[in-house]
Design a protein around this nucleic acid. Sequence first.
DNA 1: AGTAGCCTATGACGTAAGGGGAGAGTCAAG
DNA 2: CTTGACTCTCCCCTTACGTCATAGGCTACT
Lengths: 259, 259
Amino acid sequence: MKHYSVRKLAKLAGVSVRTLHHYDRLGLLRPSVRTEARYRLYGEDELIRLQQILFYKELDFPLTEIKSILDAPDFNLLTALQSHRQALEVRRDRLSVLLDTIDKTMVKLKGKEGMLTDEELYAGFPRERAEAYRQEAVAKYGARVVEESESKLRQMGKLNFDALKADASDIAQSLVRLRDADPTSPAVQAQIARHYVNIRMFWGDSVGGGNVTEAYKGLAQLYVDDLRYTASYLGHEDPAFAAFLNRAMVYFADTQLAQ
Amino acid sequence: MKHYSVRKLAKLAGVSVRTLHHYDRLGLLRPSVRTEARYRLYGEDELIRLQQILFYKELDFPLTEIKSILDAPDFNLLTALQSHRQALEVRRDRLSVLLDTIDKTMVKLKGKEGMLTDEELYAGFPRERAEAYRQEAVAKYGARVVEESESKLRQMGKLNFDALKADASDIAQSLVRLRDADPTSPAVQAQIARHYVNIRMFWGDSVGGGNVTEAYKGLAQLYVDDLRYTASYLGHEDPAFAAFLNRAMVYFADTQLAQ
DNA sequence: AGTAGCCTATGACGTAAGGGGAGAGTCAAG
DNA sequence: CTTGACTCTCCCCTTACGTCATAGGCTACT
């Protein structure tokens, strides 16, 4: 078992030594070993725990809350990672809105006035901090994710096809990255959930005669039957990736969509 | 001219009234009008300024620095918005790295061990945030920062070749990502500055008979003349990328190194 | 054995960006 | 002329560390 000194761990994780001292005193991250001279030594478990801490910090959780989350008896590392993923995706979307706000502001300043209301001037800034919390909760309940995402997208009102296409390509990239993972793993399934929602936005609600499960499975079958579908995704045909997608989608349909 | 009360503006921008009070006392955002009863009233200019403040805050600038930036006589709103755009794109990239880190961590936990080093466990975390800061600074102060970086690196004493190599590969990746951008843009130039410092660490100080500008331009020419250099960078030869690098490096040499 | 150069520990104080409340005045409406 | 929603100006509190200060530890070289 390898052990890290404070400085080594600090450098590894990109934090300061003082930060580790601080976390120790708070009881947030305790070294697994103390030498005779009271030197702190951190092991494998602490590496993972520190990573979790940094994820929650990235999402603006206060340290006390992070501690209570990580110390909770029902804390699950995998579901936590899954929820981090979703929350960070929300943040990335927020950044996209900010970039949009910049473009619009620039257009306004260029002289083409009147296209930007005062409200739009602040689109994308942290109006709701509770958003991260909700995502946290949402991630825990699988199928409910889909429902909420759907209703949220519906609330957006007008379909923004550009955004949908951008999202689709992002999902595709994520899935390509995950092609060697287990199709039933949370990481893959999270992407499949996004894919499902994305597809439904194109389809509309009434597809498949109302039987959503079979409709989605049908699409999954298309991916193996007609390799041109994977080509449009990947830029080239790839039976192995098609099979991977198929398994992931069928699993999703059976576990999340079937009732 | 429409005017907003503290509460109205706070709601509009998604900040608290207390925050506006705070900004007023700091001199960061002063109301254009005070009523007889000393009520604060904000006009159009303040809306824009608050937007700027929020952008800089989003990028983790301290308030005092924001103030000095916004109050500088040569402050230009349009170029500021452009640099926000670039910085926010960097942040979005960082989020993508974080998402990738999550996926990899999940795969590791699924049992396929050994594919993830301890370092990779923290890819995308604040180490890179400091990096973003430095890039931002480099873009602004050009030559001065290069000098500082150099002296800082010199203070490190012994050459750490592993670190240098890692840095070089990081720079290369950044440049590949930026290959479609303007070679003279701050984002590209910031990477070129890193590249320059990195190269000098390998070279030593006395290269080129003391004429650094010409030496660096010579290296730039190498990239177009001998495509094997881009191959070692990219894994394959690419004249277009070589030309891009050349232009970026020549521009850097002429604007930052020439005296 | 000495000492240089780095590492580590604890403790105490400092800081940034507000939060939260006290106590008091203001404004529009009924 | 009172009620409810705003607003003002102090002023102390909080979070997540940064920054010394002081003291000891480890390893290497002489």
